[in-house]
């Protein structure tokens, strides 16, 4: 996982790689929450382009982060997800809580400009 701040959009960009299950979610959650507090970002953008597997633990982790951004008046963006991952995102209704986009630019345009 890689984290960087997009200062212009007050967004923490989180590039997740590999398999996003319960085991991996715990570590991501911890790092993201720490960086959100440290940087003062209000939006989180999850880049799932390099995620090869995701189950409901990934959904729960992202849902939990969207509670945090909502409280800050921000938004979670999810982009680059494979079709299989998009399928469980819409099954769970996560797509109604967060902005699902093809790219970071699209996601920011859609989410941040509306906030």
């Amino acid at each position: 996982m890689e984290l960087y701040l997009s200062g212009k959009y007050r967004a923490l960009v989180v590039r997740v790689a590999g398999e996003l299950d319960h085991h991996a979610a715990a570590g991501i959650k911890e790092s993201v929450d720490r960086e959100m507090a440290r940087t003062g970002a209000v939006n989180i953008a999850f880049d799932l382009g390099a995620v090869t597997f995701m189950d409901s633990s990934g959904i729960g982790m992202i849902m939990g982060r969207s509670k945090i951004t909502s409280a800050l008046g921000g938004r979670v963006i999810v982009y680059g997800a494979s079709d299989n991952i998009k399928r469980i995102i819409s099954m769970s209704g996560l797509n109604r809580l967060v902005t699902v986009a093809e790219s970071l630019e699209d996601g920011l345009k859609e989410a941040v400009c509306n906030v």
Binding site: K29, D55, S56, S57, I59, G60, M61, M63, G64, I88, M91, S92, G93, L94
Partner: peptide
């Protein structure tokens, strides 16, 4: 049931069984 979880404090989405069924 979709979205039911016995552990809401643990950020579970309650989607496990629903995904298995799908």
């Amino acid at each position: 049931e979709p979205l039911f979880t016995g552990k809401p404090e643990m950020e579970r989405s309650g989607m496990g069984f629903t995904i298995m069924e799908a």
